[in-house]
Computed example of a mutant assay.
Amino acid sequence: MSTSAKTFPIWAFFSLLTNGILMLAVILLIWQQQRLSAFFGIVTSSESINLNNSPQIVTPDLGRRHQLTYQEWVDILKQEAKVASDQHPGHLSILAGDSLSLWFPPELLPEGKTWLNQGISGETSNGLLNRLKIFDRTQPEVIFVMIGINDLIRGMSNGVILDNQRQIINYLQKTHPTAQIVVQSILPHAAEEATWKGKDKLLAVANSRIRELNQQLQSISTKKGVKYLDLYPLFTNKQGNLRREFTTDGLHLSPEGYIVWRSALQIYGEIELKSQRQNPSGEKG
């Protein structure tokens, strides 16, 4: 059977994405040698984000959210999503997830988009699934999902986590049929080097298990026809644990860690734009 040209764009996309990640890994090694902290200073002083410059969506006071109950948190996200749905800002991208998404510095999010952060600290896959309806009326171009580490810490089985992930994908595909859905891999933790207050629970989750879960998550994403962004290898050291310079406590990310994530989002965006130009009809192979 001859190879169909229609299948090329998808395979090309994954090939380009892999090459981009490898390229990014090399760049990160160079950054490390030149001190990431110095680079971070340059980035934060020279870049701005549409969210901060736009009256449509107000950047939340993240520090205040430490004192909020879960329901109070949800209520704030509802208000922010309502503003986005009422104003219809251009090039809307949504971050859906837990504290890793929540604490993404607004000034480090890729430019040229309006970002709506729908992260909640301590969130689980079931919690996220139950509150996806909050931003039903928004019209995002892209929805980035990262969820699962808190499920693992709380002792949830891989089967339950993956089933929730399937339901999340199904819901987003049905509710936002024109949006790109990007499932992001679960990040590693720093193992014995972690200083997070829940270290014992964290150590009960082997990074090898996270890798296996990510492989299954990638398979699900492929079957569902959504994008999968593998961030995991960008954050690991030789032992397969979260690199010290990319974390504040072995679980949460440092500014340098968010620079890595930002770079991956930028490369993904560039690859996706090229893919769209090559396949403007949006046909799937």
Rank of each mutant, 00 (worst) to 15 (best):
I27E: 15
L28A: 07
I30H: 11
W31K: 08
Q33F: 09
L36K: 11
S37I: 09
S37C: 08
A38E: 15
F39G: 04
F39T: 05
F39H: 04
T44W: 05
S45D: 11
S46P: 02
S46L: 13
E47F: 12
N50R: 14
N52H: 02
S54I: 10
P55S: 08
I57S: 09
T59K: 05
D61N: 15
D61H: 11
G63F: 07
G63I: 07
Q67R: 12
L68H: 13
L68I: 04
Y70M: 13
Q71N: 14
W73L: 09
V74D: 03
A81G: 12
A81I: 07
K82M: 10
K82E: 13
K82L: 12
K82R: 15
V83Q: 15
A84P: 04
D86C: 03
Q87A: 04
Q87D: 01
G90P: 01
H91F: 12
L92T: 01
S93E: 11
S93N: 14
I94S: 01
G97K: 04
D98S: 15
D98Y: 06
L100F: 06
S101Y: 02
L102F: 12
W103R: 06
P105L: 02
P106W: 04
P106H: 08
L108V: 12
E111I: 02
G112D: 08
K113L: 08
T114P: 01
T114K: 02
L116I: 09
N117G: 07
Q118T: 04
Q118Y: 02
G119M: 04
S121R: 13
E123M: 09
T124K: 05
S125R: 03
N130F: 00
N130S: 15
L132Q: 07
I134E: 12
D136L: 08
R137M: 07
P140L: 03
P140V: 06
E141P: 03
V142H: 06
F144A: 00
F144K: 00
V145A: 08
V145I: 15
M146L: 14
G148N: 02
I149D: 07
